[in-house]
Computed example of a mutant assay.
Amino acid sequence: MFEFLGNVLQGIGEALRLNPRVFEIVERYPNTNWVILMIAILGGASMLVGQSVILFVNRVRPGRFVLSLVVNGIIFATSLLIWAIAIWATGQVLFPNDISFRTVMRMVGLGATPYLFGFLVLIPYLGTFIGRVLSVWSFLVVLAGITFLANGALWPALVCVGLGYLLVTVGSATIGRPILAVRNWLFKTAAGTTFDLALDDVLDHFANEKSPPKGGR
């Protein structure tokens, strides 16, 4: 158990630094699957912790709160799986290679590492910016991993990762709407609430409470 936790912590540190050694380990040792899965689930859970104010404002019970964290982590890991499929399929079409989907999936799983700081999105005024920084950081981790698999070929890797991300984004806004609806239903069911108040509403209210009245000194 302690060895497993040590591997998780080591993987997190090396991935955040974009250390090529961590990508080499991921490629060569299939037993890193559970380590990467844990990182992905923790990343998704951390993102929800950052938005936990929604759960408290909507009066989610403690048991439901924990269940919501678990469900969000699983949903987050699933989104990474879809991104990995898009990257792998793009690479097979545009740059035929022998890289297995399982290896690509492990590299994308490492991309969840920056989201361990997801709890910081709760910071007023800076939350949205921090969320975007984490998204870019995650993209760079995945790009570094795919570049390693491509033997240092940056442009093919950038095309695959970028197009994969674009396909997922466009697909979510179009044909993926039913899937998003199911995801939202699962999350609301786990939380036991319809979420009448969203995070942006709460933060806007907080900001207005802290701002001086117009015309005041």
Rank of each mutant, 00 (worst) to 15 (best):
G111A: 05
A112T: 09
V70R: 12
Y115I: 09
V108T: 05
A157Y: 03
L203Q: 08
W137M: 09
N184A: 07
S100F: 03
A157Q: 05
N72W: 13
L158S: 10
R28C: 01
I85S: 03
S135R: 05
G192N: 10
P114A: 14
T174F: 12
L134W: 05
N31Q: 15
L120G: 03
F65A: 10
G152P: 09
V136L: 15
G171M: 08
F2G: 04
L140Y: 08
F187C: 02
L9V: 08
G192M: 04
R61G: 12
L180V: 00
L134Q: 04
R217F: 14
A153Q: 15
I36Q: 02
A84Y: 02
L9T: 07
V57E: 10
K214Y: 08
T32A: 11
G111T: 03
P124A: 14
F187R: 02
L167V: 08
V26A: 10
L149H: 04
E24R: 12
L163G: 02
G73R: 04
G73A: 15
I179Y: 15
A181L: 06
K210F: 09
A86L: 09
N7S: 12
L180C: 04
R59P: 05
F119W: 12
I99L: 07
M1F: 13
N33P: 00
I99W: 02
Y165W: 15
A190T: 00
W155A: 07
Y125N: 10
A15W: 00
V66G: 07
F195E: 10
E209N: 11
L143I: 07
L55W: 02
A45S: 12
F23H: 06
L143G: 03
G91K: 02
R61P: 00
I25A: 14
V49Q: 05
V22S: 06
A45T: 13
F56P: 00
W137H: 09
V71L: 13
T147A: 11
V26M: 06
V136P: 03
G127V: 12
S46Y: 02
I39H: 04
L16D: 07
S135D: 14
V170M: 01
V142A: 12
E14G: 00
H205D: 12
K210P: 00
G176W: 00
L110N: 05
D200G: 05
Q92S: 14
L154N: 04
A157M: 10
N151Y: 08
Q92L: 08
L199I: 07
R177D: 07
S172A: 13
I87W: 02
G13C: 10
A40N: 06
D196V: 13
L42K: 07
F2I: 09
F148N: 08
V71W: 08
G131L: 10
L18W: 04
A153H: 13
Y165A: 13
D200Y: 02
V70L: 15
G6A: 11
W185I: 00
R102D: 15
L163K: 01
Q10W: 01
P30K: 04
G44N: 03
L94G: 04
R28M: 08
L167I: 09
L149I: 03
E27I: 13
F206G: 01
F148V: 05
G91M: 04
E27Q: 14
G73N: 05
T147F: 02
G73T: 14
D200S: 12
S46P: 00
A84K: 00
L149A: 01
T128W: 14
A198G: 15
L80P: 00
R64H: 10
T194F: 01
F65H: 01
F65L: 13
S135C: 06
A86M: 14
I179E: 06
